[in-house]
Amino acid sequence: MKKRTPVSKIMTKDPISVNLSNDLADVVQIFKERNIHHIPVVSGDRLLGMISKTDIDRISYVNSYATEAANAVVYDILKLEQVMTSNLETIQAEDQIKEAAELLARGSYHALPVMEGNKLAGIVTSTDVINYLLEQF
């Protein structure tokens, strides 16, 4: 197993991001169209937070019972900054994959923003780490 492989080798580079001018309906549409589960929230180059599909599911009525109209009302009432996670763990692009795995294993989240200095460079998910490990065997 390659022990010193940097996160930059497995991260999604230039991830889709949103900013605070996007509403929750925009975010839901991106999740559906792109089949992704995590979206960084930015202001220019500055990372403000992350929103996940799980965050959206938490504010929606129980999905099997909700109507689209009921969920749309919830999405209109709440603002992105009220739903996103803003106190994030991050990792640097040159950090080792092992460090990302350790952060993901002990956190209650499944994605980390990958930074180059203070600029968002990508995103790495628990699935990325698992796929990397599977390739090693």
Rank of each mutant, 00 (worst) to 15 (best):
K2N: 14
K2W: 11
V7Q: 13
S8M: 10
S8K: 15
K13G: 00
K13T: 01
D14W: 05
P15C: 00
P15F: 00
P15Y: 00
P15W: 01
I16N: 00
I16C: 01
V18N: 01
V18Y: 03
L20W: 02
L20M: 02
L24T: 08
A25K: 11
A25N: 09
D26V: 08
D26A: 06
V28A: 11
I30N: 10
F31T: 08
K32N: 14
K32G: 08
E33H: 13
R34H: 09
R34K: 15
N35L: 12
H37G: 12
H37R: 15
I39S: 02
I39R: 07
V41G: 09
V41A: 06
S43R: 10
L47P: 04
L47V: 02
L47D: 07
L48G: 00
G49C: 11
G49S: 11
M50K: 00
S52P: 02
K53L: 08
K53Q: 09
T54E: 06
T54W: 07
D55P: 07
D55Y: 09
D55K: 08
I56F: 08
R58M: 12
R58V: 08
S60E: 15
Y61W: 11
V62I: 15
N63A: 14
A69F: 13
N71A: 02
A72V: 03
A72W: 00
V74G: 02
Y75W: 12
D76Q: 13
L78C: 05
L78A: 07
L78Q: 06
K79C: 00
L80S: 06
Q82T: 09
E89V: 13
E89G: 04
E89H: 14
T90V: 15
I91T: 11
E94Q: 13
D95R: 11
I97V: 14
K98E: 15
E99S: 15
A101Q: 12
L103E: 05
L104D: 12
A105D: 07
G107M: 03
Y109M: 07
H110D: 09
H110A: 06
H110E: 11
L112H: 06
V114N: 09
G117K: 10
G117P: 13
K119T: 15
L120H: 09
L120C: 07
A121H: 06
A121P: 06
G122K: 03
G122T: 07
G122M: 03
I123C: 01
T125R: 00
T125C: 00
S126F: 10
V129E: 05
V129I: 10
N131G: 01
E135K: 05
Q136T: 08
